[in-house]
Design a protein around this nucleic acid. Structure first.
Length: 467
DNA sequence: ATGTCC
């Protein structure tokens, strides 16, 4: 039986390229052709692909056939890219690899692109680079926001000396083990309840109705990859505005996003954008939605819901940890770094500012630029620099790919680095080792025009997903 | 990033 099952790979072999064609094919075959062998199914599908006009009136295969004929008709009215890409400002050029500029050039060749900038931690991503900022007029690029919509930072500051962390080390570790949840599919042991789950937006589209159940299960969880929850030392420095003396305090810092909800929204609307916005193949990831269309307004609404959900997840994490430990924060700093906003720029126009792995840095706006599991990160105050579209980096940026880090580094080497830094790590893996990241201090030196540092955060007990 | 394809 198992070898009757069609996989994406099988479909790719017969030149089923788009996600939509592949998912239609799998649905139709499992529903109406379940007694066919895999070979027979592939034979049917290949013929539909090669001779779609023969199947257009077929009650079952017609919908799939029209996918292929439509494509060939559609390709005649592709969106034209600009011959010369618009200029964009680069911060920290020496930290950024060549392909990243090419990706940004492509972004600035879109007819909707008005302004752009690269942050000093920029590197390649799907569509817009991570660390890329793109300003468009009345249009949103789902992959300009990223798959993890509302990926964000949240810091709680406590009026407690950091020595408390050493004295109550065991309780802090237990709190992280008992009150956070990493990885896919995991569920928190305690009841989650938050008004975000009652938001009426969840009832307004079939997609959001479908994703609501997952949102309920995943509320207050953290996900995987570079996401973390950590306790550490906050050092407030000159120019801070927290109403406390300069010095060191206990802090709680979290990094995560909107989990399956945002991923589902991003996938869905980038798919619609690709159908509506016919870009050449190599630029497909930049497909956009106009904000005055129904789909565009829907994405904007769903994106904002995912952003609020991501915030709710952080709020739950902080609330549950504080309750477990019997402590109360005196201040909070938080910011999205994967999102799009309507913002007025210096000319007085309102543009759609996409920040994909970039920290909002409007004048006086506070944000968090995290380090690695051992490296100190920063609490910053934006300067509202126009040439960066009021943005800054969202971290140090990777120096090594995940695979590269795994191949060139060992567990025992990581243990040494952690113990030297006095950091306890729960979970985590080689691919997130500090050595896989650029030096954040060098990156910060490239953005002194963008932000002022008002505090530092040094991790002490870090929880991440298991590698 | 993601129950990594409905």
């Amino acid at each position: 039986m198992g070898n009757h099952k069609l996989r994406g790979k099988d479909l790719k072999n017969i030149n089923y390229e788009t996600d939509k064609a592949k998912s239609l094919a799998i649905d139709i075959m499992s529903m109406h052709y379940k007694h066919y062998t895999k070979q027979e199914k592939l034979k049917v599908l290949l013929d539909v692909k090669n001779n779609p006009e023969h199947y257009l009136s077929d009650p079952i295969l017609g919908v799939l056939a029209s996918e292929f004929t439509c494509r060939s008709l559609k390709s005649k009215k592709e969106v034209q890219l600009l011959k010369a890409p618009g200029e964009f400002k680069v911060f920290g050029r020496k930290h950024i690899a060549d392909q990243t500029y090419q990706q940004m050039d492509l972004a600035m060749s879109l007819p909707i692109a008005e302004r752009g900038a690269l942050m000093p931690d920029a590197h390649m991503g799907y569509g817009l680079p991570i660390g890329g900022v793109l300003a468009t007029r009345n249009a949103v690029v789902p992959y300009g926001v990223g798959l993890d919509i509302g990926c964000r930072m949240s810091l709680s500051l406590f009026d407690i000396a950091p020595g408390y962390l050493k004295r109550k080390n065991y309780q802090f570790k237990m709190a992280l083990k008992e009150r956070t949840c990493f990885g896919s599919g995991g569920v928190l042991s305690i009841q989650q309840d938050h008004e975000i789950l009652d938001r009426k937006e969840f009832t307004t589209t079939p997609l959001l109705r479908q994703l609501h159940g997952k949102a309920v299960k995943q509320l207050g969880t953290s996900g995987s990859g570079n996401h973390f929850v950590e306790f550490g030392e906050v050092e407030l420095v000159d120019g801070h505005d927290f109403g406390m003396p300069l010095g060191k305090y206990l802090g709680l810092l979290s990094h995560s996003g909107s989990r399956g909800l945002g991923a589902g929204i991003a996938r869905h609307y980038t798919g619609i954008a690709r159908e509506k916005c016919l870009l050449p193949n190599y630029a497909q990831h930049f497909a956009w939605l106009n904000l005055d269309t129904e789909e565009g307004m829907e994405y904007w609404m769903a994106m904002n819901l995912a952003g609020d959900y991501a915030k709710a997840c952080h709020d739950q994490i902080h609330r549950h940890l504080c309750k477990y430990l019997g402590i109360k924060p005196v201040a909070t700093v938080e910011n999205h770094h994967n999102f799009a906003w309507k913002e007025k720029i210096e000319t007085g126009e309102t543009l759609v500012i996409h920040r994909k792995g970039a920290t909002p840095a409007g004048k006086g706006v506070l944000g968090i630029i995290p380090g690695s599991m051992t490296a100190t990160g920063y609490i910053v105050r934006g300067k509202g620099e126009q040439s960066s579209l009021s943005s800054a980096s969202h971290g140090a940026g990777r120096k090594m790919s995940r695979a590269q880090a795994k191949n060139s580094y060992t567990k025992s080497a990581l243990k040494k680095v952690l113990s030297k830094a006095g950091v306890s790590l729960i979970g985590g893996g080689i691919d997130e080792a500090p050595i896989a990241y650029k030096d954040l201090d060098e990156v910060m030196a490239s953005q002194t025009d963008l932000v002022d540092v008002i505090g530092r955060f040094t991790p002490k007990i870090v929880r991440m997903d298991k590698a």
